[in-house]
Simulated assay, not measured.
Amino acid sequence: MLQVKGLSTRHGSLQVLRRVTFHVARGEIVSLIGANGAGKSTLLRTISGVHKPSEGEILFMDTPIQQMAPERIVRLGLVHVPEARQLFPNLTVLENLELGGYLYGRKHVESALSDMFEMFPILSNRQRQKAGTLSGGEQQMLSIARALMAKPRLLVLDEPSMGLAPLIVEEIYRTVQTLQQQGTTILLVEQNAMGALAIAERAYVLETGRIVLSGKAAELMEHDDVQRAYLGKDYQHKWEK
């Protein structure tokens, strides 16, 4: 579904991504893990059209998208949930959701809203509340729901567990697994390696702008370098697929 080939991205004179190559197949959850500053968010912003690469190719559904505007990429079905939620805080929950589906018109929005309120009942209860007054977990649910309003084939999640309590993180990850079961392909980018590897089929490790490890998520979870850098020697498996 997604092929990234030799992708490099710069911020001014700073080289952030260095010939990154990876792929996501239809129906997978693929995790991309790495420390803060590894280039994870820059990679996602490049894939979704916010940044333009200095070299390389991005194919989505066999269509080159590396020079496309972000709204065209969304129309193709690749939708990005950004780091730190980035909601419209002074708009209501309902208005944020409506903006997520604006590309497809009122009829679609009305139908999709019903689906979102079924998936996230708390948002139905809060729909007239301003987004900025929600808890962190509720904001993350709203951010995911807003993205789902755009009918993604591939949902790209940037650090969805950031700043959330462990019980809320579990709920978010269960939601990600449910979305996969319903047919949405997921690219999950996380510093939370434990949770990300536990729910993914495959994974990649990004360090200083380069892919340094890749393979089945369960195998990477047992890799000495991954355990030492991200999981800690006392790590115990917590999640069930």
Rank of each mutant, 00 (worst) to 15 (best):
T184V: 15
E118M: 05
E110F: 00
P160H: 06
A131M: 05
L148W: 04
N125E: 15
M194T: 05
I144S: 13
G163I: 00
M149T: 14
Q127C: 11
R126Y: 11
L188I: 08
T185C: 04
A147G: 13
G136S: 03
R146F: 09
P121V: 02
G136K: 03
N125V: 01
P160Q: 09
L154Q: 07
L167G: 01
R106P: 00
A131Q: 08
L148S: 09
Q140R: 06
E110M: 05
G137C: 01
A131S: 06
L167A: 14
A200E: 12
A147W: 07
Q140S: 03
S143D: 00
V205W: 07
E118T: 10
A147Y: 12
L188S: 12
E118L: 02
L188Q: 12
V109D: 00
S124E: 14
A203S: 14
L164I: 03
V109N: 01
I172N: 02
R128P: 01
L148F: 04
S111P: 02
N125G: 13
V205H: 04
P152K: 12
G136D: 08
A193Q: 08
P166D: 02
L155T: 08
Q182R: 15
R153E: 13
V109C: 03
S114W: 01
A203I: 06
A145Q: 04
L113G: 01
A193I: 04
A165M: 13
A196N: 03
E170V: 11
I144V: 15
I122V: 15
V109G: 07
V109P: 04
V176M: 12
K107I: 00
L148P: 05
H108S: 07
T184H: 13
G132V: 10
L167P: 02
V169P: 08
L188D: 12
I144K: 14
M116C: 01
R128M: 11
P160C: 08
D158M: 11
Q191K: 02
T185N: 07
D158P: 09
Y104R: 14
V176C: 10
S135I: 05
H108T: 00
Q127F: 11
H108V: 01
N125I: 02
